[in-house]
Simulated assay, not measured.
Amino acid sequence: MRRAERLFRLVNEMRTRGVSRANELAEHLEVSVSTIYRDIAHLQASGMPIEGEAGVGYLLRPGFDLPNTTFTHDQIDALAVGLAFVESTGDPALMSAAREVRAKIQAGLPAPEERKLADAPYYSLQSKNSAPADVGILREAIRTQQVVEITYTNAGGSTSTRRLRPLVIWNLTDGWMFSAWCELRQDFRTFRFDRIAELTVTGEHFIADEDTSLTAFMEREGCEEQV
């Protein structure tokens, strides 16, 4: 690991802790304790607001932050992979937003001509499933926590009307789906977009509790059968 990257990670780790002991920081960064002592001394000499001393612990004073555009090479790769995935979703609004984010971050990087967000050694597989027309509407409903009402045909051919609290959208190899808390079933359910005859945002807002939230759903993800 280059020293500049190690220093960045050291400061970032101290931001997430209270008092940091050198041996704990050394274990996290996989370096020696003496290296941590030298790095902290260097940061203090550079004006970093770090208080404390060897054998006692160190504290990065609250209020200090790193520039938003200071990224390690691995973090740049992570951004590039994430943006490449978003650009392959088939959702026109998200694809355009991802390209704009890429341009903004790229312009703010130090020496942007030397390290481009498009240069990550990873590629996102392109989805063959174009985003459904209603996906943008549903994303807005999830963001604003609005109840939606759908007319839906299940795998057995039965049609029903459901009031749902939408939680998450899935772009899978066999199609687009979304998961929600179903007020009719009083449980989580996952629905295929291609079986929705009609989708309406009701304008009614909901507040997810610990039993109906996305966190609760993800804890059960993989246990529920598809509708």
Rank of each mutant, 00 (worst) to 15 (best):
S46L: 02
F8S: 06
K116I: 00
D119W: 13
K128G: 13
F193P: 05
G90F: 14
Y152E: 04
R99G: 11
A111E: 13
D134V: 01
T72F: 00
L7C: 08
D209H: 05
M95F: 01
K128I: 05
A131M: 08
P110M: 00
E149T: 15
F8W: 12
T159V: 15
R3E: 15
E219W: 07
G203E: 12
W181S: 02
M1F: 14
V31L: 09
E51V: 07
E140T: 13
E114D: 15
N171H: 14
G55W: 08
R6Y: 06
F188N: 01
N129W: 01
Q145C: 07
I50C: 08
Q226H: 04
E221Y: 15
H42N: 02
T144E: 07
G90E: 04
P62N: 08
E221S: 12
Q146R: 09
L59C: 09
L59A: 12
E221Q: 11
D134G: 10
C223T: 06
M1R: 14
I36G: 04
R143G: 06
D211Y: 01
I150F: 10
F188A: 01
E210S: 09
Y122E: 00
E100F: 12
I207K: 06
R38S: 13
W181M: 01
W181C: 02
R139Y: 11
A78E: 13
R185K: 13
Y122N: 00
K128D: 15
F217G: 03
N154Q: 01
V33T: 11
G52A: 11
D209K: 03
A97S: 10
P132K: 04
M218N: 15
M1K: 14
E221A: 14
M1D: 14
P132R: 02
L125V: 09
K128L: 12
A131F: 06
A118S: 14
E113M: 12
S32T: 14
D77F: 06
E5G: 09
L94D: 15
V135Q: 12
Q226F: 08
G57H: 11
A197V: 05
A111W: 12
R162N: 07
A141F: 02
T200N: 12
E210W: 02
T215R: 03
Y37E: 01
N171P: 05
V19H: 12
L138R: 02
P166A: 05
P121Y: 06
V148E: 06
P110V: 10
V168C: 01
V31A: 11
C182G: 01
S46R: 00
E183H: 06
R165L: 00
Q145N: 10
L66M: 12
F193T: 02
S130L: 10
A141I: 03
R189H: 06
G136S: 14
T144R: 03
Y37R: 05
D77V: 00
G175E: 05
A133E: 14
A93G: 02
H42D: 10
Y122W: 12
F206V: 06
A41F: 00
F71W: 03
R21P: 01
Y122H: 09
L167F: 02
R192C: 05
L125C: 00
G57K: 09
